[in-house]
Amino acid sequence: MSSYYENSARGRLAGLLDPGSLVEILPPTERVVSPHLRQLDTPAAFDDGIVVGEGRLAGRRVLAAAQEGGFMGGAVGEVHGAKLTGLLERALDTRPDGVLLLVESGGVRLHEANAGLIAVSEVMRAVLAVRASGIPVIVLDGGTFGCFGGMGIVSRLCDAVVMSEEGRLGLSGPEVIETTMGVEEFDSRDRALVWRTVGGKHRYLLGEATTLVEDDVAAFRAAALSLLDQLSDPGPDLSLAALEAEHAVLGSRLERFGDCGDALDIWERLGVEEPEKLPILDTADFLATVRDRRA
């Protein structure tokens, strides 16, 4: 068993794809680094914190990207975003069986200001274009730094999200909420609070994570493979009626849970007995306990 959480972006990708199948695009030796960080007198990374390339998943042809949270929290700068957008646009040309996004990001790289913001919006547009062309885009979220900000939005624009309990998904990250709203509103150092609010179990219960897996690279690989097959035939329903139905579901969710002050209240309202015990259950017991209880 190899922890997805503890691995680097490169380690995750190597364990996820068929051994030796990854052909990296713009590898570190190309030295396509951030032009902005140099101006700020800050060391750049040779890959700008993201690995993109082509590979195989159990023989299926995939494009894959992996963000490295260890470099500036996986934040999206101009080059980082362009690599992601370029990979997605390549999918429109080469028509792989799917695109895998191994997200780990705090969102826009604030050092790069508007260039980072524009990069994220380009990624969003590219994701939608790939989905519209019938190629599934699958997010894997189980890294040390979680997935927030613009990349949180990008993740929810995709066809499916695979998470581990350790993964986190949200818009404003815990520290951002604490900084802007105060520690009384959200204590970012309360790990139990953070994980039950933005962690994989809660996201799975709300239906935002499609699949919940153990913190194991092989488990992520199996989930990605299964989703790839499920999503390719038939493709997702992207009609106006389907989108309106999705909006109606989101609206009813607010009605159901809008007055809940804590994830525990939501779990109780979902009919989970002893909701306070959910955080300590291992993945298999958790999935058995919450069967038929998801929002």
Partner: peptide, 12 residues
């Protein structure tokens, strides 16, 4: 062709 180790992060 090349070897890359480590990450550009604080203390690393």
């Amino acid at each position: 062709p090349s070897v890359l180790v480590g990450v550009v992060g604080s203390g690393n």
